[in-house]
Structures are given as C-alpha cells and as structure tokens.
Amino acid sequence: MVWRTERLVLRMWEPGDVARALDLYGRREVARWLGAAPRVLEGEAEAVALIERFRGRSADPRFGVWAVERRDTGVVAGSVLLVPLPDGGGEVEVGWHFHPDSWGRGFATEAARAAVAKGFADGLAEVRAVVRPGNDPSLAVCRRLGMEPLGRTDRWYGTELEEFVLRAP
C-alpha cells in the first residue's frame, strides 16, 4: 500500500532501505524512546531483520509499519505505524519514529494524521498513542493530532508511558 500526503509518501519499508533504517534505528537519540529496554541497531543484519519485521506487521491490510519518504527528496524521513497494542485487548496504536535530520518539520504529525485517517476509514473507533514520559516532541505530536491524554500506564511495553486516545469523528 502506498499513499501520499502533501509532502510525504507512506509506503512499505523495502530491502533497499537498509542503510537508512540502520542510520535511523542505530541512533541513540531515536532508540532511547523505543521499547522497554531501548537499544540501537548494531549492523546491517539487524536492519534487514527490522525491515522484515516491519513488513510482517502488514499481513492485515488495516495495520502496518510504513516508511515515510519525503516527496521533495525521496529520502526516508522515518516510520509511521498503526498496529494493535501487544496485550491483545484490541486497542490500536499510532506511532512515529523519525531521523534527527527530519525533526521539527511537522513530518511526524503529517504522517500520523494520515495513518489515523486510514485507521478510521478502515473502521477503527479509536486510536491510541503511548509515549515515554519526557519525549516532549512526541507529546506535542499527540496534542497537534487532538488526542485526549489519559494519564500514565504501564499496561504496554513493560514501562510507564503517557497514554492518549483519539476517537473517530
């Protein structure tokens, strides 16, 4: 699946994106916000495996982890995801991971807005975001998306997170 926003192309991560995936997820300033035990990718083989995992998250066409490519340069700026949260409770998460060279340009908000719109068009009643406390840029994206803050939870990913919800119009 490929779709476009004003400035971005959202598409599957491809094998040719390995170097950019390694550059993005191999950075401590990105990885520090991800997962219960943040760690950076340490080589090409790990980047290949990551892309395969991302591609596997799209077995159900409603969900996925997509590369976010800038239309003006063709460079992958980051990832946007729309995936079920891991406890099997049925909640769906929107998330974003961007390379530092693409921070502060509104790409995360634009990509997340597109992913949320896709989720609602596919019949989701609501979408959640979970953000590590202190990740002020991602907290700001949640606010720009109009998400309602629900407070802190440790329900997902083995760590305390700020939880947000956005309900379908």
Rank of each mutant, 00 (worst) to 15 (best):
E93G: 11
F98P: 08
T109V: 08
G89I: 11
P86E: 09
G106D: 03
V83E: 13
G106V: 09
A111F: 07
P100G: 06
A111V: 04
V116M: 06
G90V: 12
H99G: 03
F107R: 03
L81M: 12
V116N: 08
H97P: 00
V83R: 09
W96P: 01
V83G: 08
S102H: 10
V92T: 09
V94N: 08
L85D: 08
A112H: 07
P86D: 12
P100V: 07
P84N: 09
G89V: 03
A111D: 00
A114M: 00
E110G: 08
P86Q: 08
P100C: 10
V83W: 11
L85T: 13
L82I: 13
D101R: 09
V83F: 10
L82T: 13
S102D: 02
G106Q: 05
L81I: 04
P100W: 05
P86Y: 10
T109A: 05
G95F: 05
W103R: 01
S79D: 15
G104K: 05
R113P: 01
W103H: 14
S79A: 15
A112Q: 02
W96S: 07
L85M: 15
P100F: 01
G95C: 02
G95T: 03
D101K: 00
S102Q: 03
P86V: 14
S79G: 09
V83H: 13
L85W: 13
E93S: 04
G106W: 06
D101W: 10
D101P: 02
A112N: 01
W103P: 02
W96H: 13
D101M: 02
F98D: 07
G89M: 09
G106F: 06
A115S: 01
G95H: 07
W103M: 08
A115D: 00
G106A: 04
E110P: 12
W103T: 09
G90C: 04
D101F: 00
D87T: 15
P100M: 07
F107T: 04
L81T: 15
L81K: 14
S79R: 12
E93P: 06
G89C: 11
P86M: 10
V116K: 00
L82W: 11
G88R: 12
P100T: 06
A108S: 04
V94K: 10
G106S: 01
S79F: 09
E93W: 11
A115W: 02
E110H: 11
V80D: 03
F98T: 11
W96M: 00
W103A: 14
E91H: 10
V92W: 05
G89R: 09
A108M: 02
V80Y: 09
A112R: 11
E93H: 07
G95S: 08
G88V: 15
P86A: 12
R105G: 00
G89N: 06
A111W: 05
L85N: 13
P100E: 14
V94M: 03
F107H: 12
L82A: 10
D87A: 12
P84F: 09
A114F: 05
T109N: 00
